[in-house]
Amino acid sequence: MIVAIASGKGGTGKTTIATALARIWDGPRVAVDMDVEAPNLHLFLAPSYDGRKRAVLDVPVVLHPEACSGCGACSRLCAFKAIIALGDYPVVFPEMCHGCGGCLEVCRRGVLGAGKRELGEIFWGRAGAADGASPDLRIAGGQLRIGEAMSVPLIRQVRTKANEMLAEHPGDVIIDAPPGTSCPALSAVREVDVLLLVAEPTPFGLHDLGLAVRALASGRVPTGVVVNRAGLGDDCIRAFCHKHDLPILAEIPFRRDIAEACAQGIPLDHMGELRTMMETLARSLRELAEPRVAA
């Protein structure tokens, strides 16, 4: 089964919960960090890496400017203004290119060739059974290059890598999704069996949970909510979940000692009653996903 942990608002505790779930989850599983802009899962799972790979996007390069007739077909086709025609030669802005390949197809004079833009890197490895984590935990993730704008193609490559790992050795998948409700978050929660939204009981937290439910919880995917820092603000999240028929699967209390432990990187399953809470959460997620996984 595939579980994705997401939230509209950032900093609600997605990675903290993904870490704990990954550590206590029974059986073989891959923890996948799809928050490639701010990847943090590896900080808490401390994996030994089996590999790293540069992730690239195919972009055009000007190979033969002298062959250009100045027809402007490439510039007219490019929806992103990544290639412009200046009189009798094209200029490419590779960082604006989405990699559609259209300019290479329309140029009849072989002016353009295939080049690469580095998106970042993807990495994979195993977390081992260090300090009390249950064994057979693998990790895959990606890290966007500084200055690179497009995270979605990198997220897709992380997903491909995770699929390869699963093909090699099947297991469950725990996805740490990027925050927000636009394309990166959506591409991370595609085709999952259960969605877990992490929210905090503040006006911002409530507003962004509403956005996340609208954007990510399509109705077809069973969805549950974890309230983090419960007791911090007001009762708004509970009321919202009740109204939208969303089960609250766990409530992590707002306590300074928990905040301090999390700041230091101590996983929740190291904290007495929170371990039990995470185990219950894992069971609830399996139950929620069951009709889908069985089908």
């Binding site: 510039s75 992103f80 203004k81 990544a82 412009i84 025609a85 200046l86 802005f93 604006m96």
Partner: peptide, 8 residues
């Protein structure tokens, strides 16, 4: 890319 279109 309005700026680039203007340059063209």
């Amino acid at each position: 890319g309005a700026g680039l279109a203007a340059v063209e």
